[in-house]
């Protein structure tokens, strides 16, 4: 591979070029027994119990941004979706749809980031697929990841299990990912550190779920942000919610960009945060466990579940006012993940 080489239609044709790409670029990075067999699908052992299965596609534009790229986003995203089911993610698949002409070194960087992200999360990439489409038929690189994981024993988390009196914990600052993408895409330059928060949350979830604390809901507030996710849970569980503005963690510089551009951080995407809804008596302990994780240092109890105004989320504003936090309508920022 020379620095100027690009992906060609040949790389997706299933012939010699495809095989060379797999054996030279992909297998060495993702290496594991199931993948090395090069069969049509992966065969792997699983312990007895219940499984969680999830899939997600990534079309973020641009594919490189501050703090990450489409590769770790795709791995972390599926890892987190499985973790939010109350499961320990084990195996994932990777489907690449590549636009002809993508520099091979860009692909190499993305694949390396995926391998690193999988290692950090402790999951194996066991099967995959590569397609190349003519220039203009896709935008540089789209990735689909699917994954499976084993549920932790006795755990039952669901968006429908929030109960009046429960506390709402957010594992860190809001809106970091959406603002990082926006600034990268629009070429906006702001002072400070506007990095994506993309991170695997499965270790944090494992620590919480194996602590003996009861957890009713786990959800990662990705597209639509914390505001939309809380509305979904309130609707699913048939409860109301009150969130306290003064307790909502937002980085100062992210808040500054939001103020400037007229965005509400409550509706901006996160890729490395979770919402945990837990009974009041376990809230402080769960908060401490989350804060002990490297991706949970800024965690806070941001609100509580009520039996008032079922299906609605209210914000107690810093000045003592109260307003509705509705679900996001349409797109605030397109193609953020």
């Amino acid at each position: 591979m020379t620095p100027d080489d690009t992906v060609l239609l040949d790389h997706g044709a299933g012939g010699r070029a495809s095989h060379a790409m797999f054996s030279k670029m992909i297998l060495p990075l993702f290496h594991n027994d199931a993948l090395a067999r090069q069969d049509d699908g992966a065969v792997y052992p699983v312990p007895a119990g219940r499984m969680a299965f999830s899939t997600d596609s990534y079309v973020v534009d641009p594919i490189f941004f501050c703090g990450g790229n489409i590769g770790d986003l795709a791995v972390n995203g599926t890892v987190n979706d499985i973790a939010m089911c109350g499961a320990d993610p084990l195996y994932i698949s990777v489907g690449l749809i590549i636009e002809e002409g993508l520099p091979l070194k860009d692909l190499q960087t993305v694949l390396q980031t995926m391998a690193d992200a999988a290692a950090r999360a402790g999951v194996k990439i066991v099967t995959g697929d590569t397609k190349v489409v003519p220039r203009g038929k896709a935008d540089k690189l789209f990735i689909n990841t699917s994954g499976v994981g084993m549920l932790f024993e006795g755990v039952d988390v669901s968006g429908s299990r929030a109960r009046p009196g429960d506390k709402i914990i957010l594992s860190g600052t809001m809106a970091d990912h959406g603002i990082a993408i926006l600034t990268a895409r629009e070429g906006l330059t702001f002072e400070g550190d506007l990095k994506t928060d993309s991170a695997p949350l499965n270790h944090m979830v494992k620590a919480v779920l194996s602590s003996g604390c009861e957890v009713h809901v786990l959800r990662d507030p990705t597209r639509g942000g914390v505001g939309t996710t809380l509305n979904e849970i309130a609707g699913q569980s048939g409860v109301g919610m009150t969130v306290f503005e003064k307790d909502l963690p937002v980085k100062k510089q992210v808040n500054g960009v939001c103020e400037l551009l007229g965005f509400d951080p409550l509706y901006i995407a996160n890729e490395g945060k979770l919402i945990a809804i837990v009974p009041e008596q376990h809230a402080v302990q769960v908060l401490d466990i989350i804060r002990a994780d490297e991706f949970g240092r800024d965690a806070a109890i941001i609100g509580e579940v009520t039996d008032q105004s079922v299906g609605k989320v209210f914000l107690q504003t810093a000045i003592g006012g109260r307003r509705l936090v509705d679900m996001l309508t349409g797109e605030q920022l397109p193609r953020i993940c």
Partner: peptide
């Protein structure tokens, strides 16, 4: 208008 709603000024 937006600021008034966002900060919940009407109901104070």
């Amino acid at each position: 208008t937006m600021a008034i709603f966002r900060h919940g000024i009407r109901n104070v």
